[in-house]
Simulated assay, not measured.
Amino acid sequence: VRVQAGRPAWVRSALARGDVVHCAGPWRASGGWWSAERHFAFDSFDVEIDLPAMTVLLIDISNYVVEYFYTIPLIPLAIWLKIKLIRKFTYGRAGWDTFVLKVPIFGQIVEKNIVARTSRTLGTLVASGVPILEALNITRETSGNYVFERMFTKIYESIREGESIARPMKEFSRPQFNVVCAYFWFVFVGGPIGLLIYLTRMNNRVVDDLVVNMVDVGEETGELDTMLYKVADNYDEEVAVLTESLTKLLEPLLIVILGGMVGFIVIALFLPLVTLIEKLS
Rank of each mutant, 00 (worst) to 15 (best):
F184D: 00
F184Q: 02
F184S: 03
F184V: 04
W185Q: 03
W185A: 10
F186L: 08
F186C: 02
F186G: 04
F186T: 06
V187N: 02
V187H: 05
V187F: 11
F188G: 05
F188T: 04
F188P: 02
V189F: 13
V189Q: 07
V189H: 04
G190N: 10
G190L: 12
G191S: 06
G191M: 10
G191F: 12
G191N: 06
P192C: 00
P192T: 09
P192K: 14
P192H: 06
P192R: 14
I193R: 11
I193K: 12
G194I: 07
G194E: 06
L195Y: 10
L195M: 11
L195H: 07
L196Q: 11
I197K: 10
Y198H: 09
Y198R: 10
L199A: 07
L199E: 09
L199D: 02
L199W: 09
T200R: 15
T200K: 15
R201S: 12
R201V: 02
R201I: 06
M202C: 13
M202H: 09
M202V: 11
N203K: 15
N203A: 14
N203V: 05
N203Q: 13
N203Y: 12
N203F: 12
N204D: 13
N204I: 14
N204G: 01
R205G: 00
R205C: 07
R205V: 06
V206N: 04
V206Y: 01
V207D: 00
V207C: 03
D208S: 15
D208W: 05
D208Y: 03
D208M: 06
D209S: 12
L210E: 02
V211S: 07
V211I: 12
V211D: 00
V211Q: 01
V212F: 05
V212D: 01
V212C: 12
V212Q: 04
V212Y: 04
N213S: 12
N213R: 15
N213H: 14
N213W: 07
N213K: 13
V215I: 15
V215E: 03
V215P: 05
V215Y: 02
D216P: 00
D216I: 03
D216Y: 13
G218K: 09
G218Q: 10
E219H: 09
E219S: 12
E219K: 11
E220S: 14
E220N: 10
T221H: 03
T221I: 10
G222T: 03
G222C: 08
G222L: 09
E223H: 13
E223T: 11
E223F: 08
L224G: 01
D225E: 14
D225P: 06
